[in-house]
């Protein structure tokens, strides 16, 4: 199972506590994870990816295994530890403001 962590506002919106677990067929990519996440939690549609373009929203970032994956291709496989479920795929609200 893929583990995904969400920022506070989206945990509240999805009515979940802690990480969510998703079954995602391999190859596991960012797009596949987000598709599975939105299928399980439809209220998150449009909050992580733009509703029209399906591009990552500007103030959203994706982290995993200590790396920033925000600018990786949505169709590239994510790190093996994420696929194995030993590390979470972290969805982050970008730091902004003073």
């Amino acid at each position: 199972m893929i583990r995904v962590t969400l920022p506070t506002h989206l945990r509240t919106l999805a009515q979940v506590n802690g990480a969510v677990e998703l079954a995602v067929a391999e190859p596991v990519t960012q797009r596949a994870i987000l598709d599975a996440l939105e299928a399980a939690y439809p209220m998150l549609r449009g909050t992580i990816r733009d509703m029209a373009t399906q591009e990552r929203r500007p103030f959203i970032r994706f982290f995993a295994c200590g790396e920033d994956l925000s600018h990786e291709s949505a169709d590239e496989p994510v790190p093996a530890e994420v696929t194995a479920g030993t590390q979470p795929f972290r969805i982050i609200g970008a730091m902004a403001g003073g």
């Binding site: 920022p7 506002h9 989206l10 919106l13 439809p42 209220m43 549609r45 449009g46 909050t47 992580i48 733009d50 509703m51 929203r57 103030f59 959203i60 609200g93 970008a94 902004a96």
Partner: peptide, 24 residues
Amino acid sequence: GGWFGQVIQRSDDGGKTWETVSNA
């Protein structure tokens, strides 16, 4: 919000409970 875009919710009990509806 700037981070997470647009959400629309509706309540049928005067605001006690809410459900998301379409934001498309």
